[in-house]
Every structure is written in structure tokens, then in C-alpha cells.
Nucleic acid binder design. Structure first.
Ligand SMILES: [Mn+2]
Ligand SMILES: [Mn+2]
Ligand SMILES: [Zn+2]
Ligand SMILES: [Zn+2]
Lengths: 143, 143
DNA sequence: AGGGGAAATTGGAATTATTCTAATTTGGAG
DNA sequence: CTCCAAATTAGAATAATTCCAATTTCCCCT
């Protein structure tokens, strides 16, 4: 089973016309391909700028609309660092984010295998988590 | 050693005129007392509304200024959930936050003792974390 | 193939949390 | 008491995101 985000350099044409019950319009396809084609974590505006290269008439409102559609259908993840603008991530595996304060770059951080949340947190019993976000900031030492 | 946030119903007068190197003006005192006097996680505007009761001339800009001063001096914590407005927390112990989606209430969640981040995350070696935020959303089952 | 209609896109305006600015006030040091 | 840096204030500015109303797209039906 090969996940969408494993595809190397996807062209918009590579996507079916419907995905996870979401109609794949050409704008949505373009935006998805922008997000999948570079493993960084672009903001909506970054996505807009990149999408404009191949689709000069796309609007920022559409970028926001498409991102919201992709996120709510679980095709793309939305990532937040404090009050900064949201970023978007194609990695659907369980992971969290580390922002290197010296470069601004965001790195995916996976969980050690076998661990699960409840092992770490003193959660009130009966808690059902629907959404989890872990964001780290710091530096990578030269050692 | 009794921590500030353990004081029951602190009046502004209870605070020294300087704290952690921060000059305690009457506005800062008032705002700190607002935050300490109720264990919820108010937004800046909530704080403004509450502070106005005892200090009708305080301005929203001052509330933001004071919160920023208190946060940057480590006297209060700033808490974020996705794109919602920031909230402020008097609990300085290591903890994270759970928002109950049925009530909107935010609960402090502590870490199980003895665990530490590096045990959970596949961090690139040499990583120095300067800031960490864990935010959960969900519901508390009736069981 | 043609037409209807719901959904998507668009540009621009609106919203809103937060920050900035410039003028005034405050309060501790000398 | 005076001086001065820092804090407060009202209001304007900013910027990310959402809303709106008009247009366009395109799927479905005949
Ligand atoms: Mn989410
Ligand atoms: Mn912080
Ligand atoms: Zn990611
Ligand atoms: Zn808290």
C-alpha cells in the first residue's frame, strides 16, 4: 500500500478526479501537487506563490478553500507554531514538528515506536483525544 | 517553597513591587492577580474584561503589554490551540493542555513522573529544545 | 450533445487578534 | 523635588484568515 505522499514528483494529472470523497478540481489538484512536491511546510501564502507559477489565475481565497478541503478530508495536515501562520504538511504518518530557530526550518519528528500518549500523560480517565498537536522549537547542536 | 500560583485568592497588594526582575506596576499586579485568581485559561480579552472591574481605566493595549511582560519573565504561560486566540495560564509546573470540545474548557494535563520527551520522540541527535507545546482536544467519556 | 443546478472559484471587502505609534503619565533614583 | 526612563494609553495599523456575492465549472440527467 503506497501512500500518496510517497509519490516522488507528482504532477497534478497523477491524481484521480475524486479522493477521500473530495472532488479533485484542477485547483485542488494543483495545490495538492504543490504540497507533495517539496517536503517543507509551506504557509498558505507560500502555496499560493508556488501554485501561481503553473496556474497564474488562481486566487488566494481558493488556496485557503482548497487547503481547508484537503485538511478536512485528511489528505493534508495543518501545522501550527504558536501564533505564526498555519503551515501545511503532506506527511500523514503520526508525527510532530520541530522548528529549528536558527534556520526557521521545520522538521518532522516521529514518535518512538511502541509508545503511546497515555503512557506519557496523566489524562483524566475516559478522555477521548480527537486532535493532538506537539510543536517543538530549538536548535540543533553542532556536537 | 510555596509557588506564586498556590496562593488562594491573591489580591494585587500581595505581590512585591518587583518579581523576577520585572517591575510590578499596578496594572501588571492587577493582571497577574486576575490570572491567578481563577484557574481557567483566559484570553487577553477575558483578562481585559476582568481587570476592568477593579481598574476601569486599564486599556487593552496595556493588557497585551503586561501579558507579554509576564510571559517573557516566566511568571505566566501562554497557551495556544490551533488558530484560536492565545490563552494565559498561571500553572508553572511542567504540563500541557486538553480542551474539552463539549464545554470548551481547558484542563491542565501533567506528565507521568519519570518520563521525558526524549523517550518519546525520535529527535535528531544534538537537538536542544527551547520551547515545547502539547495541545490536545477531545471529549471526556461518561464511563 | 445540451441544459440545469449544485459546488467551486474568484476578487474584493470584512473580520479580528495582535502590534505599533506617538503622546501622556508614572514612579523610582538622585 | 526634579528628571528621566519605562509604562500606559487611545487609536491607528497590520496581517492572517474568512466572508460575500457574482461568475464559472462541471457533473448528472435527458
Ligand atoms: Mn486539526
Ligand atoms: Mn513561548
Ligand atoms: Zn510534517
Ligand atoms: Zn495550564
Amino acid at each position: 500500500m503506497i501512500a500518496l505522499h510517497d509519490i516522488k514528483s507528482p504532477k497534478p494529472e497523477d491524481f484521480p478526479s475524486e479522493l477521500e470523497g473530495l472532488r479533485m478540481t484542477k485547483q485542488r489538484r494543483e495545490i495538492l501537487s504543490v504540497i507533495l512536491s517539496k517536503r517543507d511546510h509551506p504557509t498558505a501564502n507560500d502555496v499560493f506563490l508556488r501554485a501561481q507559477k503553473r496556474m497564474p489565475t488562481i486566487s488566494l481565497a481558493t488556496v485557503y478553500n482548497c487547503l481547508e478541503a484537503l485538511v478536512s478530508h485528511g489528505i493534508v495536515r495543518q501545522v501550527n507554531f504558536e501564533r505564526e501562520s498555519s503551515r501545511y504538511c503532506p506527511n500523514l504518518n503520526d508525527h510532530c514538528h520541530f522548528q529549528d530557530e536558527s534556520t526557521g526550518q521545520i522538521h518532522d519528528v516521529t514518535f518512538k515506536k511502541g509508545v503511546n500518549l497515555a503512557d506519557f500523560l496523566e489524562l483524566p480517565q475516559g478522555t477521548e483525544i480527537s486532535h493532538l498537536e506537539i510543536s517543538l522549537k530549538g536548535r540543533i547542536g553542532s556536537s
